[in-house]
């Protein structure tokens, strides 16, 4: 093996320095053939490697299975539990909030209904009062009107009476002035007849 490498480099030795350098680089690739091939197949190193591998594996397994894995599993379970709990709590709070809103809406509707009822009652009351007052006023107005018309009638009657009186007096006076002797009874009849006509 090393023979080839050396022959190769001796051959290239004669050539230009470039070729020489490449051969040197190539030699690095094919160089230490003096070392017995692949170190992986050097069986003398196997016991040492296997021994230390087993030691390392036993340490890792013990540390992981006794300390690390239960701890990490615990942390993850813890977190999972906490998240679930938090979500549950949030869910509960949400339902509570929804219930509270429902109750609030309910109360609002109740209050509204109550208010409407009160308004209606008040309206009815007012209407009744108003009606009563109107009726009262109407009655009063009617009474006053009746009284007024009565008085007007009286006045009118009084006026007619005084007109006939005045007419009688005037007629008597006119008759007297004309020189006639007026009989009160005749004058009254004539005036009444005239008044009628």
């Amino acid at each position: 093996m090393s023979n080839t490498a050396t022959t190769l480099s001796t051959a290239t030795d004669a050539a230009a320095s470039t070729a020489e350098a490449i051969a040197g680089a190539a030699e690095t690739a094919g160089h230490a053939t003096e070392s017995a091939g692949m170190p992986q197949l050097d069986f003398a190193t196997f016991p040492n490697q296997i021994f230390w591998l087993l030691v390392a594996l036993v340490i890792i397994y013990t540390v992981l299975s006794k300390i690390a894995l239960p701890r990490i599993g615990g942390i993850l379970a813890d977190r999972h539990g906490r998240i679930t709990r938090d979500i549950e709590a949030a869910e509960k709070l949400k339902t509570q909030a929804v219930e509270a809103e429902k109750a609030y809406n309910h109360a609002l509707i109740d209050a509204r209904n109550e208010a409407a009822k009160i308004v209606a009652a008040a309206k009815a009351d007012i209407q009744a009062d108003l009606d009563k007052a109107t009726a009262h006023a109407d009655a009063e107005i009617a009474a006053r009107a009746a009284e007024s018309s009565k008085r007007i009638e009286e006045v009118r009657a009084g006026a007619v009476a005084s007109v006939s009186d005045v007419a009688k007096d005037v007629a008597e006076a006119i008759v007297a002035a004309l020189g006639g002797a007026a009989d009160a009874k005749t004058v009254a009849a004539a005036v009444a007849a005239r008044m009628k006509g």
Partner: peptide, 14 residues
């Protein structure tokens, strides 16, 4: 050359 020469499999030596 000598200083830089190494074998690609040398890194696996035990």
């Amino acid at each position: 050359n000598e200083a830089l020469a190494f074998h690609p499999m040398d890194q696996f030596k035990v």
